[in-house]
């Protein structure tokens, strides 16, 4: 019985470890597909933040809810960015180009989300409108990136 438990426990650990880990990208194609996934995931977080701000400005969402959603989006975005940055790209010019292009968008998105959170907590309506404008452009660029490479 002890052996059965040991095997079962090892299996469970193996499942959790494998299903959550980030693998290296061995080819440019694999790296590109991971970049597209990153673009889509980060786009989802930006869109969540943008829609929430829009709803709050229209008086359809509570301030506390907005603050929580923005904070969660920022955390999730940061995690997506870190995961992408931790992938070792293959040694090709195209992979480096992909990385540079997406990294810029991710940095813009992360900065924009942080700014959005700060402005939302200060209830700075005018500042929020300007930041939403900038982030919408970043979201459009991420969408374009995903479409072009997907």
């Amino acid at each position: 019985m002890t052996r059965v438990f040991r095997v079962a426990f090892a299996g469970l650990v193996f499942v959790f470890a494998l299903s959550g880990c980030v693998g290296p990208a061995r080819t440019t194609h694999t790296y590109e597909s991971k970049a597209v996934r990153t673009a889509n995931d980060s786009l989802s977080e930006l869109q969540t933040a943008l829609l929430s701000v829009q709803m709050t400005r229209r008086g359809r969402m509570m301030q506390v809810y907005l603050e929580t959603v923005l904070s969660e989006s920022e955390d999730a975005f940061s995690s997506i960015q870190n995961t992408f940055d931790s992938i070792q790209p293959p040694d090709t010019g195209r992979a480096d180009q992909l990385r540079a292009g997406l990294d810029t968008l991710l940095s813009d998105g992360a900065d924009g989300l942080a700014q959005l959170r700060i402005l939302a907590r200060r209830q700075d309506t005018r500042g929020l409108a300007a930041e939403v404008h900038k982030l919408t452009a970043t979201a459009a660029a991420l969408d374009k990136f995903a479409q072009e490479h997907g």
């Binding site: 969540t48 829609l51 709803m55 359809r60 809810y65 959603v69």
Partner: peptide, 18 residues
């Protein structure tokens, strides 16, 4: 249609606000 994939409870409630 907004390219939002749910991974938080806050996102579950978003359609209600809309």
């Amino acid at each position: 249609p907004n390219n939002i994939s749910v991974n938080t409870l806050g996102q579950v409630g978003l359609p209600i606000a809309v």
